[in-house]
């Protein structure tokens, strides 16, 4: 199939970027989207041009590295998958495809389609941990976890931290990411001791990083490759309000 690509090219965070147009004459519809970009890069190298920089790692849909906005939709047109799981058969011969990076101030562009997502790490560092006793590892299943709670925590833990939620949100809000991390740890008994201080610290880190606010319109969940549901955000709000209210009367954390 023949494709016209409009790819965001930007040398670094200090320079302005722009869309460059490339034409690929022969692309197999069985190739993945990232393989298609590999083909483009080989063509660019052969022509003596700089290849397009883009993030990728496992190419199995589980690492959260790949991060392309395709025709305005983070991770492309398929729901519940990452870009690496998107195949060219999803497109038609002669299509024009626009490829852009995640766009958010807390995700500065390093080069072309590669962004620095360490602001997510800062949110995790603020509260994405639990207190455990040192020494030998405790026996598995020593702490009973009710099945619905375990299921809920597992749904939240599915988040791979790719940042598509931020990229899809018109406000560049990181509420879905933060809510998944908070919901995972706050719902399990192991995470209970830091429940209140965790939610306060992680929301604080989220605000400090400069993410926008949630308008509850759900685009984050719609593009999430792990389909983190919106009710995680409701839980984040609930836990935050409870923790903030408690902090009026008692020392939290």
């Amino acid at each position: 199939m023949k494709l016209t690509l409009k790819v965001w090219r930007q040398k670094n965070n200090q320079t302005l970027g722009r869309l460059e147009t490339y034409v690929l004459e022969e692309v197999s519809e069985d190739s993945s989207f990232l393989e298609m970009l590999d083909i483009l890069n080989e063509q660019l190298i052969a022509d003596g041009q700089t290849p397009v920089a883009f993030d990728h790692d496992c190419r199995e849909g589980i690492c959260g590295m790949c991060s392309l906005t395709i025709n305005g939709i983070p991770h492309g047109p398929d729901g519940g998958t990452t870009v690496c799981q998107l195949h060219m058969r999803r497109f038609n011969d002669g299509d024009t495809i626009t490829i852009e990076p995640w766009r958010a101030r807390p995700f500065p562009i390093i080069k072309d389609l590669v962004t620095d997502r360490s602001s997510f790490d800062h949110i995790m560092q603020a509260g994405g941990f639990i207190s455990v006793r040192t020494g030998s590892a405790i026996d598995a299943n020593e702490i009973p976890v009710p099945k619905p709670v375990a299921d809920y925590a597992m749904d939240a833990a599915a988040c791979i931290g790719c940042g598509a939620c931020v990229a899809a949100c018109k406000n560049a809000s990181a509420m879905l990411f933060t809510s998944a991390k908070v919901a995972q740890l706050n719902s399990l008994p192991q995470g209970k001791p830091e429940k209140d201080r965790r939610v306060l610290a992680m929301v604080n880190a989220m605000d400090e990083a400069g993410f926008g606010s949630c308008t509850n319109y759900g685009e984050c969940s719609a593009v999430c490759p792990k389909e983190i549901p919106l009710d995680m955000i409701a839980k984040l709000n609930r836990d935050y309000i409870v923790a903030q209210t408690k902090s009026i009367f008692t020392k939290v954390g």
Partner: peptide, 20 residues
Amino acid sequence: IASRRARPQSYQQEATVQAS
């Protein structure tokens, strides 16, 4: 204002998946 600041560069191509 804060949300506008969070996205200084807008997308060249915008799309909506499901938002009403």
